[in-house]
Computed example of a mutant assay.
Amino acid sequence: PAAATAPHPRDDSVADWDEGLALWGGVEPLRAAWARFLGEQQGRTQELRQLVQQGDWEAIRSTVHRMRGAAGNLALQPLQALLAQMEHDALHQDRAALEPLLPELATALAQVEALLRTSAPSATPTAAPRPATTLPPAQQLQALTALHTLGKALQQGEIASPALQAVQQLLPAPELVALLEALDLFEFERALECVRTLSTRLETCVDDEPHAHLAPQP
Score class of each variant (00 low, 15 high):
1 P>D: 06
2 A>P: 10
2 A>T: 01
3 A>Q: 10
3 A>E: 11
5 T>S: 15
6 A>L: 13
8 H>L: 13
9 P>N: 04
10 R>W: 12
14 V>K: 01
17 W>R: 00
17 W>T: 05
18 D>Q: 13
20 G>Y: 10
21 L>Y: 06
23 L>H: 03
23 L>N: 00
25 G>W: 03
29 P>S: 06
29 P>R: 01
30 L>I: 10
31 R>G: 06
33 A>N: 01
34 W>K: 03
38 L>K: 05
40 E>M: 05
43 G>D: 03
44 R>A: 13
44 R>H: 07
46 Q>R: 14
46 Q>L: 12
46 Q>F: 00
48 L>V: 09
48 L>Q: 01
49 R>W: 02
50 Q>V: 08
54 Q>Y: 00
54 Q>L: 12
54 Q>E: 15
55 G>C: 03
57 W>L: 09
60 I>Q: 04
60 I>Y: 00
62 S>N: 05
62 S>V: 14
63 T>A: 14
63 T>Y: 01
63 T>L: 11
64 V>Y: 11
65 H>A: 15
66 R>M: 11
66 R>T: 15
71 A>L: 14
71 A>R: 11
72 G>F: 06
73 N>D: 08
73 N>Y: 02
73 N>Q: 14
75 A>Q: 03
77 Q>G: 10
78 P>V: 05
78 P>E: 11
78 P>C: 13
81 A>S: 14
81 A>E: 15
82 L>D: 15
83 L>R: 01
83 L>H: 00
85 Q>P: 04
86 M>G: 00
89 D>S: 13
89 D>L: 13
92 H>R: 14
96 A>C: 00
99 E>C: 06
100 P>W: 08
101 L>N: 12
103 P>F: 13
104 E>K: 14
106 A>F: 02
107 T>W: 02
110 A>H: 10
111 Q>W: 04
112 V>Q: 08
113 E>L: 11
113 E>G: 15
115 L>V: 10
117 R>K: 10
121 P>L: 08
122 S>H: 10
125 P>Q: 12
125 P>I: 09
127 A>N: 07
131 P>K: 07
135 L>W: 10
136 P>E: 11
137 P>T: 02
141 L>T: 10
142 Q>C: 02
144 L>M: 10
146 A>G: 11
147 L>Q: 00
148 H>G: 15
149 T>W: 04
149 T>L: 09
156 Q>E: 12
157 G>S: 07
158 E>V: 04
158 E>M: 10
160 A>W: 03
160 A>F: 06
163 A>I: 03
169 Q>H: 09
173 A>T: 08
174 P>K: 10
176 L>V: 05
180 L>F: 07
182 A>M: 06
185 L>R: 15
188 F>H: 12
193 E>V: 06
193 E>D: 12
195 V>C: 04
196 R>V: 03
196 R>E: 12
197 T>F: 01
198 L>Q: 06
200 T>S: 11
201 R>K: 15
203 E>G: 00
204 T>Y: 04
210 P>G: 09
213 H>C: 07
215 A>T: 01
